[in-house]
């Protein structure tokens, strides 16, 4: 068991350090992807014709193997974390753009008409009405993007020491220490589950207005009984 967390020195981090690195390399792309996806999605909502081509582009980008990205990027950004995070950012778009577009589009017509009639301008309406109501859909997209990103970070080992927990797989091979592979797989899975649970918590905190479970049914009954 001691050998389980005994990380070879060529990785330049202890286990905790690898976990931190892994999270940074996985979560920064999701954040970057969200920042990119919000304006893109808003454009797709406003200009309906733009949505199908945008979807097509994000899907094609998703289909490009990360190795191909690395080959191109390594000339510009070298063997750095950035080279790993750029393709990961691009990959999140395939989930985030449709999540935001569908979320924003699912806002009921009456709500939009009421907002317009009350004198909301387009920007205020987007920020104060459409985005908040789309929050559950956006968080659902973020969950998929985050989990996928956490597992994809491992490919960073292809350009040297940038795969974080993924590099343990490589070391398991060269040092013939299978427990390192177990460590990599189990830690990555645990991280994914934890971050996903955290996002669910964030969603619950952000959307106290969503009906959920038996509590909501009870209050609704109380309300009707009045």
């Amino acid at each position: 068991m001691n050998r389980f967390f005994d990380i070879p020195s060529d990785l330049q981090h202890d286990w905790i350090g690898l976990v931190g690195l892994h999270l940074r390399e996985a979560l920064l792309p999701v954040l970057g992807g969200l920042l990119l996806a919000l304006p893109i999605a808003q454009l797709c909502v406003r200009l309906r014709w733009l949505y199908p081509p945008v979807l097509w582009v994000t899907t094609v980008l998703y289909a490009i193997p990360s190795l191909a990205f690395f080959v191109v990027l390594i000339d510009y950004t070298g063997q750095t974390e950035l080279t790993v995070m750029i393709p990961l950012t691009v990959y999140t778009l395939v989930v985030l753009v449709p999540a935001i577009v569908d979320g924003v589009r699912s806002v009921p017509q009456e709500t939009l008409a009421a907002a317009t009639a009350m004198g909301f301008g387009p920007v205020r309406r987007y920020v104060q009405v459409q985005l908040p109501i789309a929050t559950p859909a956006i968080v659902a997209g973020l969950r998929v993007a985050t989990v996928s990103s956490i597992s994809l970070v491992s490919v960073g080992m292809l350009i040297g020491n940038q795969g974080a927990l993924g590099n343990l797989l490589h070391d398991a091979q060269i040092y013939n220490r299978p427990e390192l592979a177990w460590n990599s797989v189990l830690t990555t899975a645990a991280l994914a589950v934890l971050v996903d649970a955290l996002l669910v918590g964030v969603r619950v905190l952000l959307t106290p207005w969503m009906p959920s479970g038996s509590g909501a049914t009870r209050t609704r009954k109380e309300a009707t009984a009045r």
């Binding site: 008409a113 009421a114 004198g119």
Partner: peptide, 22 residues
């Protein structure tokens, strides 16, 4: 246009309430 709209109350079918606000 928004000044005009704010001077006119608007009630719609199904209320059109903001579900995310109290």
């Amino acid at each position: 246009v928004n000044t005009l709209r704010r001077s006119m109350g608007y009630v719609i079918q199904n209320a059109g309430l903001f579900q995310h606000r109290t």
